[in-house]
Each structure stands twice: as C-alpha cells, then as structure tokens.
C-alpha cells in the first residue's frame, strides 16, 4: 500500500513538473547563448491562453500547442531583437513584456474564462504500462510528460554533443572570441532566443491543456515563470541539474498538499506562496557558496570543495551583455 503511495507521488511529480521542465529547458538554452529572457511569466500565461483558445476553437490539441510555441517564440523575438540587435536592456524589455503579456492574456482570454475545453488524455505506452511498479510510474502519462523528459535529454545532447550547441555555449561565454572564429554571435543568440521561447510557449500550453486545464483569471500558472527563471540559476545553467531542480520543486509542491490538510485553518492561498521563500532560500544558499570566506575554508577541505563545485554553476560569462563588434 505504501509502495503504491510513493509511486503515485512520484508519478505526480513527473507529471506536475512537465511545464516547468519545458520552460526551464527553454530558458537554459536562451541564457546559455548569453541572452536573458525575463518575460517568462507573461509568456507562459499568454501562451497558455492562446493554446486553450486555439485548441477549443479548432478542436485540435496539436494546433493549440503549435500556437503556444509560436507565441513564445514571438515574444522571445521581441526580447532578442531589442536586446541583441538594438542594444536595449534585456531586463527592462523582458520585464515590460512580462506585465504586458499577462494583461493581454487576461484581456483576450476573458470570453474563454471557465469554460470546458479539450485537455490532454493519458497515453499509456502499450506493453510497457503493464510493467510492475515502473508501469504506473513512467508509462501511463500524457504525451506531454514523455515529451518533457525527451526535451531534457535533447537539450543536453544539443548543448554538449552538437556543433550548434558548442557554438551556442561559446557565444554565451565569449562572443568576441566566437566572432573571431567566424561565428555570428547576434544571429545565433536570436535563433536560440526563438527556440528557447518556443519551449517556454509549450510550457504555457502544458498548463492550460495539461495539468491546470482551462483558462481563467487567475489561471493558476501565475508566478511559475519566475520560479522557472530561478530554477535555471539554481541548476547552474546545466540542463540536467536544472531539470533536477524542476523535479525537486514539483516534489515539494506535491508534498505541500498533505501539509495543507494538517492546518485547515490556514487558507490555501498561503500555501501557494510557499515556493517563493523556497526560491529565495535556494538562491541565498547558492550566493553564500560564492563568499570569499567559505571559498577559502573549502579550499582547505577537498571534499567540501568538491561538493561546492558540484553545487555551483557559473553563469555564462557574457549573460545579459549585448555583443558589439570592434
């Protein structure tokens, strides 16, 4: 009986994390190229709304997700063009887009509030679903969950095993040197902003067509974009560590559900903010590991140093700074 519970929880984590995984992978790709797309929170909401609207009107989930990806890429294009080609502050543009896209989603989505619409159904993998334990854990999910896992692996493979991924990391690290080797840093940054943005858009669709089906104000995905941005930092810009962070976050969320029943007098909304102090705490721990005193202490203790090294990830060196040719 206990086994089943643990399995159910873990299966829930796997499913619940899928949108966050998509969003964090998208942002990891974008930031690895040296560009910050701060508009995640608004992008996710607008994409969620559009996905639901399109899926509802066209009666096609596929079209819904396609529309969500296009919305994500479109918003990322604004950040990319303004930030990379025009040299405007990426943070400023991203922040304005965050607020604007959220309001745009509420405004345009108003007629679709609280109506029934299509949602992803579980798609058990024939054969594999019957496996003991693993079957219910891994193989009775919706297509989206399989996709999210595949995206993690693909992102890792793309970044570390392909030539484009290598060039992308190089540009995020040292665009001048990349230019000296015949790579066009700006073009590459824009392209990966689009790719990352499309994944963030899919995350929006994953909310409104998947784990928080439907549209409304609030949708329930509010704040998730910010969490995703923080998880990318927490995961040290490495796709596997970032994914781990996303699953850890989903796990804590699932854990929070029984917690609520223990304090029935505390309103559910209070629990909804729990991820945010957690986010600050995680970033604080990360920040403290960079402190001089700790570093020096760790240098004297090889094991601690190794642990610290594994936690620490370094931001792409050129992150947020537009490249200018000499």
């Amino acid at each position: 009986m206990d086994d089943l519970n643990v399995l159910a929880v873990l299966a829930g984590v796997l499913a619940g994390a899928s949108p966050i995984v998509l969003a964090t992978m998208g942002e990891t790709i974008t930031e690895k190229a040296g560009l910050i797309n701060l508009s995640l929170d608004g992008t996710i909401l607008l994409a969620a709304m559009v996905a639901f609207l399109v899926a509802h009107d066209a009666g096609s989930l596929g079209l819904g997700f396609l529309a969500a990806a296009l919305v994500g890429a479109g918003i990322a294009a604004v950040v990319g063009i303004a930030g990379v080609y025009m040299g405007q502050s990426q943070v400023a543009v991203g922040f304005v887009l965050t607020l604007m896209c959220r309001d745009l989603a509420y405004f345009l989505g108003n007629p679709y509030s609280r109506i029934q619409g299509p949602r992803l159904a579980p798609l058990p993998v024939p054969g594999l679903e019957r496996l003991p334990l693993l079957g219910s854990l891994l193989f009775r999910h919706s297509l989206l969950v399989y996709l999210s896992v595949a995206v993690i692996a693909t992102t890792w493979w793309y970044l570390y095993r392909t030539r484009w991924g290598l060039e992308l990391r190089a540009v995020g690290e040292n665009p001048q040197a990349a230019h000296a080797r015949g790579i066009d840093p700006k073009r590459l940054q824009l392209l990966h902003a689009l790719l990352g943005g499309a994944l963030v858009g899919l995350a929006g669709g994953a909310f409104s067509l998947g784990i928080k089906p439907g549209w409304g104000r609030p949708q329930g995905a509010e704040g998730m974009g910010w969490i995703a941005l923080a998880i990318v930092i927490f995961g040290g810009w490495h796709p596997l560590k970032v994914a781990l962070g996303a699953y850890l976050f989903a796990f804590l969320q699932v854990l929070g559900i029984p917690l609520q029943s223990w304090w029935p007098s505390v309103p559910a909304q209070v629990f909804q903010v729990a991820p945010f102090p957690l986010m600050i705490l995680a970033l604080l721990l990360l920040g403290l590991t960079q402190k001089d005193t700790l570093q020096r202490w760790a240098d004297a203790h090889p094991r601690v140093r190794k642990l610290l090294r594994s936690i620490q990830g370094r931001a792409p060196r050129a992150l947020g700074r537009p490249y200018r040719q000499e």
Partner: peptide
Amino acid sequence: WGGVNEIFAGLGLNFV
C-alpha cells in the same frame, strides 16, 4: 550580503 539578484529577492518577497 547574500549575493541574491535583487529581482528574484524582491519578487519572492512580494509573494511572501
């Protein structure tokens, strides 16, 4: 002191 980017610190504290 803690090296937390003010955007995330501020935003997190908003929700808190």
